[in-house]
């Protein structure tokens, strides 16, 4: 059966009946095939994430021997989100399973591992995990190129993070304490989140401070350190204990003066439980000007996130 002998409308109908992953595999077979699929399935790939500015493909490999590849619907950093921001809506592409009894013989990946919730499952031997994931990534990269971002979600800092083309890493972890010693020094993280308060600050030279976006639970000491050394773009910081406003004032003044934190676009500091946020003191200390409400306030534009 020669697929190319079918009229293009028939080919399109056949492609419409394939899952996204099957189309991606098919497009890896030849350049011509990729061209045909891209032109006939434009609508499908455009509608995947219609409202999202930056399209992402996420590899989420937990502590178990299973991982998911999916396209999340929501942006990775949500304002006002102080909770564990697991993506709730997503379009699954593939499930990956590494298992000893994998029936692969000479193949790197067993593509015939069935379906889970209507999306394909592939499996591979644990010893081949890195190569298998690289092969899967190459297929996705071959198809989407750099039109999307590729994010690896690390939920356990002891697990190996593969080195793949254009891959950014999210660290979503319960506790950040002692992570420095075991987590690979590169690459620079895209997002870092924790659940339990961080009690041991990173060293000032740590490249964790270069993380693009952070959503962290901290105590007073670690909050001050983060405010002092953070070099990324966005931060939501929740402090559990009593809070020294001096650190925040110093931070804002450095930010305002332009001597540091040039990349910072968004900062949210939240005081948990009964801690009173000393708003007036802080506003006075950082020299916020009071406006005459009868006059037109000056306008200011911030970069879109």
């Amino acid at each position: 059966m020669k697929l190319s002998k079918f009229p293009s409308l028939v080919q399109k109908e056949i492609f419409d009946n394939l899952k996204t992953w099957d189309l991606i595999l098919l497009s890896s077979v030849s350049k011509n095939m990729k061209k045909v699929i891209k032109s006939s399935q434009t609508k499908r790939f455009k509608s995947i994430v219609p409202n999202q500015q930056v399209k992402r493909i996420v590899y989420d490999y937990g502590e178990s021997h299973e991982g998911l590849v999916y396209i999340p619907i929501e942006p990775h950093f949500r304002h006002k989100s102080r909770w564990w921001s697991k993506e709730t809506e997503e379009m699954s592409i593939l499930k990956m399973v590494d298992r000893q009894d994998c029936n692969v013989a000479e193949k790197l990946i067993d593509y015939e591992s069935g379906y889970h919730d209507n999306y394909p499952v592939v499996s591979f031997l644990p010893m081949n995990k890195e190569s298998a994931i690289e092969s899967i990534h190459n297929c996705l990269f071959n198809f989407f190129g750099d039109s999307v971002e590729y994010h690896w979600v690390a939920r356990d800092h002891k697990l190996v993070i593969p080195t793949l083309q254009n891959l950014s890493v999210y660290l979503r972890i319960e506790s950040l304490d002692n992570v420095c010693d075991t987590f690979p020094s590169s690459p620079v993280l895209k997002l870092m989140e924790n659940i339990y308060d961080m009690t041991n600050p990173f060293s000032p030279e740590s490249n964790f401070y270069q993380t693009e976006s952070i959503v962290l639970n901290l105590n007073n000491e670690t909050l001050l350190k983060v405010l002092r050394y953070f070099q990324g773009r966005q931060a939501i910081l929740t402090c559990s204990g009593s809070f020294e406003i001096g650190g925040l004032i110093e931070f804002v003044n450095r930010w305002k003066s332009g001597e540091a934190l040039r990349k910072l676009e968004y900062l949210e500091v939240v005081l948990r439980f009964k801690n009173r946020f000393p708003k007036t003191e802080i506003l006075d200390a950082i020299g916020v000007k009071r406006l005459d409400e009868t006059k037109q306030p000056p306008s200011h534009t911030v970069p879109r996130m």
Binding site: V10, I14, N17, E112, P120, C139
Partner: peptide, 13 residues
Amino acid sequence: CKQVAMMVKGKSP
């Protein structure tokens, strides 16, 4: 077309 598509489900490139 559904049947033709089924032929390649779970197959390697």
